[in-house]
Design a protein around this nucleic acid. Structure first.
Lengths: 121, 121
DNA sequence: CTAAACAGTGGAGTACGGTCCAAGGTCAAG
DNA sequence: CTTGACCTTGGACCGTACTCCACTGTTTAG
């Protein structure tokens, strides 16, 4: 799969993919003519990258996680530990969101403006 | 309250607060000697800014939300609408997280490595 | 054979969110 | 009246994550 098709499938620009390759987020072979050649698995991987990114992980972190996964002993337990760690991060984030949500919901109910407690006017 | 104390209470640097003032995230009076003078409400406001930020809102968005709140007609309904909009944003974000969490949880259970479906080696 | 559509490279530029620094003003304590 | 802690400004600089550009090479369709 060449870069254009990967870009289309993963929903990002060619430039972004070249940039990701440069920082080690994706790796691909080269064809005889110098064109990049990506395996089909690159599509879900890049989609995962996008998701992780919107969840607040930096590209460096995501790349490191990818490294860990590739370097982990190929046991189900080792992988499970990694996934469980990520789930904990997600749970923490969700808890934060729930807190903020509750705060806002209270204000909806009471009509209490944020300004009364918050930003200086 | 001068900038140093605000910085200490809000857990950020003076430079950051000056930067936030420059982009309109906080506003303060000036004392006769030119020093900034912030009201005590600036503390929870800046804490809110930090929270919103970790939840993926840009400073521009946060500033705009602050504007909306200050400029909204001072009716409970108008404020409630704003809060409800924010809650919807939060709910969407939480849904994203829930999706990713489920994905990861599946992999923990099955021991299916991300690599098998993901990053090219 | 030519034109369009694709690919490559290097390097500059952008937006965001700070962070640091130099040079200087203000103020309270000793 | 000096020392030190605090404040001011402007501007340079940084890391992250792209984005665009110019110029060149390759492939494919007519």
């Amino acid at each position: 799969m060449r870069i254009g098709e990967l870009a289309a499938q993963a929903g990002m620009s060619r430039d972004t993919i070249r940039f990701y390759e440069k920082v080690g987020l994706v790796t691909g072979r080269r064809l005889a003519n110098g064109y990049r050649d990506f395996p089909p698995e690159a599509v879900p991987w890049l989609q995962y990258v996008r998701t992780a990114q919107t969840l607040g992980f930096s590209l460096a972190e995501i790349a490191r996680h990818g490294e860990e996964l590739r370097e982990a002993p190929d046991s189900a337990e080792a992988l499970s530990v990694l996934f469980e760690q990520k789930i904990q991060v997600i749970d923490a984030r969700m808890a934060e969101l729930a807190t903020l949500r509750a705060e806002l919901a209270t204000r909806v109910d009471t009509g209490c403006p944020l300004r009364a407690v918050g930003r200086p006017s």
